[in-house]
Design a protein around this nucleic acid. Structure first.
Lengths: 124, 124
DNA sequence: GCATATAGTGTCATAAAGGATACCGTGATG
DNA sequence: CATCACGGTATCCTTTATGACACTATATGC
């Protein structure tokens, strides 16, 4: 397996890297997409996954993801309301990115972020 | 246009995604990393790659990347100054992410027309 | 003597992102 | 009758990421 030569890293026209980052770079978007990778979720289910998001922010981020064609919003004519969010095909196409982000985070953030947690679990 | 403040590190499974996004989510960081994947670059070389970045912003982003251990800064005792930036091992470990971002961008936002088409085909 | 290139730094301004808080409508529950 | 759950809106307000612009030092070439 030859080491990949990155000779074709040209980022000239409208930069794909930057453009993609712009779409998923909202404060909660990565996490929302990540959780939706596992399947359809209701508004408050997502909200509970994202510990400290406000309603306004969550609505905001979901609307942007919807506008970008990544997720669909299905409203049930019920009271109390029921709204389900799920990924579109377009949204699922982000899976490699989300996976790469998660893998990297698991590998490289674990050490510093869970140092305290590790110590605690050691003590236990 | 401020970008993101990913400060929430206490959510269980999605946390790595957000944490990673936090590190590479600066306005120019993705592109800087992308260009450095091809090899060492001087300050003004990076600047020329990033069409409209200001000196202050570029310095700022480079310092943050350096502080996060992604790049190294090598100053030559010359006049006029010569400063070279290159990826560390830690920085190179982001390669799968950057590649995934570029691949997705190339595929899905090559032009606004294709993006609109993708969204429309989702609706169908 | 003067402009030029390089890699910055400092100050100030601003638009946008994100947060806090309050309110809405209604069916079921107590 | 009062309250809660759900999925939001509507207004504020604060934070901060980014931009514009000016300034620096000095070896080198003209």
């Amino acid at each position: 397996m030859p080491r990949i030569r990155h000779t074709n890293f040209d980022c000239a026209p409208g930069c794909p890297v930057e453009g993609t980052l712009n779409l998923i770079g909202g404060k909660w978007k990565g996490m929302i997409l990540f959780h939706l990778m596992s399947g359809t979720l209701r508004f408050n289910e997502i909200r509970r996954h994202l510990n400290s998001v406000t309603q306004r922010m969550l609505t905001n981020q979901l609307r942007e993801l919807e506008a970008d064609g990544f997720i669909t919003r299905k409203v049930y004519a019920q009271v109390p309301p029921k709204v389900e969010y799920s990924l579109t095909e377009h949204g699922r196409s982000l899976e490699p990115i989300i996976s790469a982000l998660k893998l990297w985070g698991d590998t490289h953030l674990r050490s510093q972020a869970t140092k305290a947690a590790a110590v605690r679990s050691q003590a236990a």
